[in-house]
């Protein structure tokens, strides 16, 4: 029998467990992405070194949750109905955005090893700036799928604006003039 009602009830996943799992894994991917983006400012402002050691792990966790999110949608929600999946990716803007965000994170996860970092050198830093558009697309993805109550996407929009805004301010010309410009990760 194809009923997962009992299972859902037992796991506290509510009446629509697949919708619940999809939303939770997506939100956790976004939360972890924001945490990843917090590590560099935290290091700069406090001088602590541990945030930089955590950054890669947090980034990989974010990607892991993004993969879970995508797999639940493909495997559980649409049950590998590729025609339907393709139609959604191309024609539902919020899915196009979410899928693009995942695509942008993919090369970052692949090149996250020390060996790749050494091999790519300067280009590694350039490549990993893709995390910024990925995070922006992730927030837009959440914004666009929201029906009427925008408090949740707005919260993440504000958090991301602060995290990216800090970076813009760090790079502002006056910083260069005052001689305090620093490399940003």
């Amino acid at each position: 029998m194809l009923s997962i009602q009992a299972l859902g009830g037992l796991g506290g996943l509510g009446t629509n467990p697949i919708e619940y799992l999809t939303h939770e894994t997506g939100i956790w991917a976004l939360r972890l992405l924001c945490l990843t983006l917090l590590m560099t400012p935290l290091r700069r402002m406090t001088g602590w070194s541990w945030p930089m050691r955590l950054r890669r792990m947090l980034g990989l966790f974010a990607f892991f949750y993004a993969c879970l999110h995508l797999s639940i949608w493909i495997g559980l929600d649409l049950f590998f109905d590729w025609a339907l999946i393709w139609d959604d990716v191309l024609n539902r803007p919020y899915i196009t955005l979410g899928f693009t965000a995942w695509l942008l994170l993919l090369p970052l996860a692949v090149t996250s090893t020390d060996a790749m970092m050494r091999r790519l050198k300067r280009r590694w830093v350039q490549l990993h700036r893709l995390v910024y558009p990925a995070a922006i697309l992730a927030v837009l993805h959440l914004w666009w799928l929201t029906r009427a109550d925008y408090r949740e996407p707005m919260l993440y929009g504000v958090i991301l604006a602060v995290l990216l805004g800090w970076r813009v301010i760090q790079r502002w010309p006056w910083k260069a003039w005052s001689g305090s410009a620093r490399r940003l990760g």
Binding site: L2, S3, I4, Q5, T15, N16, I18, E19, L76, D77, L78, F79, D81, L84, D87, D88, N91, R92, P93, Y94, W144, L145
Partner: peptide, 19 residues
Amino acid sequence: VAHPRWSQRTERRIGDLRR
């Protein structure tokens, strides 16, 4: 007729795994 955000071709009956 698709909703701009959701394809309306399928649905999940609450309690079912498959659409």
